[in-house]
Simulated scan of single mutants.
Amino acid sequence: MSRFSLQDFIKETEQKDKGEGLFELETPRMLEINLNKQIWAKAGSMVSYRGRIKFTREGVLENGLGTLLKKAFTGEGASLMKAEGEGTLYLADQGKKITILHLQNESIYVNGNDLLAFEPSINWDIKLMKKIAGMMSGGLFNIRLSGTGMVAITSHYEPLTLKVTKNNPVFTDPNATVAWSGDLQPDFVTDISLKTFFGRGSGESIQMKFSGDGFVVVQPFEEVYYAESKS
């Protein structure tokens, strides 16, 4: 048999049931969900499914943030879809690496564009980064997830988790920040000198400052978001 036969390709790439439960990493960049009731997922992330599954799009930013915000921020990263039914669902987001977290009465903040899916048992709330709303073109909101259940987040390449302590705060680029622990509240600081090095506008001088006890997750990639312009 030829080394590059069609049969070899199918054998190497075919779906394999690992028996890991509701959330399963089929590949590092493909999430398999063995759906039996309902989950929340990022709108537009469905790649394939089998079974009887119904999808309903929900606007995340319609959760009490006002008509102005709904008109200003309407990108794919700003909305979720609800998948209901029974079957096997496959999710992915632009080839980004997927990490599964099992929250056990814990909380975490996730950048709105880096949240892929979560169980309905998880409580969620939208938090707008008001202090930088006028300085950056997007990536202005994050989602606080709390409770017990499965959560899937995404990152460009491998994520890095940095410990935050009272005596050792961590500074990050907002566009490279994926998530942070639920008991941390970032401050936004401006370093004018950074504009000398980057020359990409005032946004480059904005940093997120994390103080206290917890962690922050960053990615080796600056993910820049742009709100859709409305006429």
Rank of each mutant, 00 (worst) to 15 (best):
F198W: 11
G149N: 02
L69C: 06
D8E: 15
D17F: 06
T161S: 02
G95L: 07
Q104E: 14
V218L: 01
S137C: 07
N123F: 08
Q94V: 07
D125M: 05
M46L: 11
D213A: 04
G51I: 03
K37D: 15
I143A: 01
T74M: 14
P169Y: 02
N63C: 03
K54I: 03
D8M: 09
L61C: 00
L69E: 08
P186G: 09
K195P: 09
Q94E: 10
Q207W: 10
N175Y: 14
L65D: 02
L194H: 08
L184P: 05
V178Q: 05
F55R: 07
T88A: 01
G77T: 04
L35T: 06
V164R: 01
F4Y: 13
K209S: 06
D93R: 04
V60R: 07
K131V: 06
L25C: 04
E26Q: 10
S121F: 09
V178M: 05
Y157L: 15
E14W: 07
T56N: 10
V60E: 07
T165G: 04
L22P: 02
G134S: 15
G212Y: 03
M1V: 13
T27H: 06
P159T: 02
V47G: 08
S181M: 06
M30F: 10
F198N: 09
D213I: 01
L103S: 01
T165P: 02
Y109M: 02
E222H: 13
L145Q: 04
A78R: 02
M30G: 10
R57Y: 08
N175M: 10
T74L: 14
N168G: 06
S202W: 07
G214M: 00
N36T: 14
L128C: 04
G203Q: 10
G212Q: 02
I192E: 12
L22A: 08
R57K: 11
K96W: 01
K71T: 14
E58Y: 06
K42V: 03
A179E: 05
E84L: 00
M1Y: 11
Q185G: 04
K230A: 14
I153L: 02
I192F: 12
E20C: 11
G134Y: 12
L162Q: 00
L140M: 13
F141T: 03
G51N: 05
G44F: 09
